[in-house]
Design a binder for these strands. Structure first.
Length: 359
DNA sequence: AAGACGGGGTG
DNA sequence: CACCCAGTCTT
């Protein structure tokens, strides 16, 4: 690959990093592979500011890999609650245990083996390899794709297999083998603070004079993308059943959203439904087989996910008779609710005070 | 190659 | 509201 001002890219980037980059983060500059890995998993598709607190809490709760590996899954999920992409959490714990069991409690010191671990893809493997072990692997995240596509005004779409390969190869040509960690850190910081997705600060950019997109006045035209996405609408009906100060919850299983989190017994319909319709549902009948239940209120909420719009109705019902709880449902005291991780829409419902028992 | 997977910030 | 974030896994 040959592009104009290729050498200058790295030189200007590193000069900026040393003189002007003031971005501070708790994990910046550390060499402990465990903490680097932890930070990188937390930061996958997550803004630094959003992930920062979670990182602090995880390091506090689990200072070492062994501590994390020994933790209970419920507890780890509770700590992860609210961060999203919960498979990251499942894989985090899985890999921690895998490393303790089969790798002597240490991270492998090469890219390929890192890549084979669950939850570690090309980005994270390169991040650990470079930051912890000074290996010359370029990270390629959203920042890097944006910075490179703009600086060289590249029309190769970033959201294809070919594009990914193309930008990875380019980044690996630009990275100086003697200081890969510095380069990786610098290019991501530049992308996050100056070469931002919208309204980039080209006036402050140390690379602007050589940036092809800037010269063309087309900064916002890059990076090029191919795919568009559609939003699916879904309608959830939660049965919030109270027996005194106990209620029924269950863990979400299967391949759907929020796997591993807890929720109230739920009925999904094609559209928002009322009690007349829901009473016909098996889930409702199993839970409330007789007339001992009293409907106290209905609350409606929405949650916008990236690819789905969830509309939810919470049916708040009470009973005097001890309910029949069949596995996997469990009966929990209201004061135990905080031990479980719930989707945001349920957390907000519980905190809203529109039903009497709070988290 | 295309979808699925969260929650929150930004313009 | 659309877009995007220190991406990865499944189908």
């Amino acid at each position: 690959m040959e592009f104009t001002h290729q050498k200058e890219f790295t030189r200007l980037l590193l000069a900026w990093h040393r003189k002007e980059n003031r971005r501070e983060m708790p994990w910046k500059g550390i060499r402990d592979p465990y903490r680097i890995w932890l930070a990188e998993i937390i930061l996958q598709q997550t803004r630094v500011e959003q992930g920062r607190e979670y990182y602090e809490r995880f390091v506090e709760a689990y200072p070492t890999l062994a501590d994390l590996a020994a933790a209970r899954e419920e507890e780890v999920f509770r700590l992860w609650q609210g961060l999203g992409y919960y498979n990251r959490c499942r894989n985090l714990l899985h890999t921690a245990r895998e490393l303790m069991k089969s790798h002597g409690g240490r991270f492998p010191r090469n890219y390929k083996e890192l890549l084979s671990l669950k939850g570690i893809g090309p980005y994270t493997a390169a991040a650990i390899a470079s930051f912890a072990f000074d290996l010359p692997h370029a990270v390629v995240d959203g920042n890097v794709l944006r910075v490179l596509s703009r600086y060289f005004a590249l029309n190769m779409p970033i959201d294809t297999q070919a594009g990914k390969k193309y930008y990875t190869r380019l980044a690996n040509e630009l990275i100086p083998p003697e200081e890969p960690a510095i380069f990786n850190q610098a290019i991501m910081d530049l992308g996050a603070t100056i070469c931002k997705p919208q309204a980039p600060l080209c006036r402050q950019c140390p690379l602007a004079s050589l940036c092809k997109a800037f010269q063309l006045g087309k900064q916002e035209q890059f990076p090029v993308k191919l795919t568009r996405r559609t939003v699916r609408e879904r309608y959830f009906h939660y049965l919030v059943c109270w027996f005194g100060d106990h209620t029924i919850i269950q863990k979400r299983e299967g391949k759907d959203i929020w796997r591993g989190l807890y929720e109230f017994p739920m009925i999904e319909k094609e559209r928002l439904a009322g009690t007349e319709l829901l009473q016909e549902d098996t889930a409702w009948k199993n839970l409330m087989p007789d007339g001992s239940w009293q409907l106290k209120g209905i609350v409606e909420r929405q949650q916008q996910l990236t690819h789905q719009l969830i509309s939810a109705r919470f049916f708040y019902v009470e009973t005097d008779r001890e309910p029949r709880v069949l596995s996997p449902q469990i009966l929990v005291h209201c004061k135990q609710l905080h031990q479980y991780a719930f989707p945001g829409i349920i957390v907000k419902y519980l905190r809203s005070g529109q039903q009497p028992l709070l988290l």
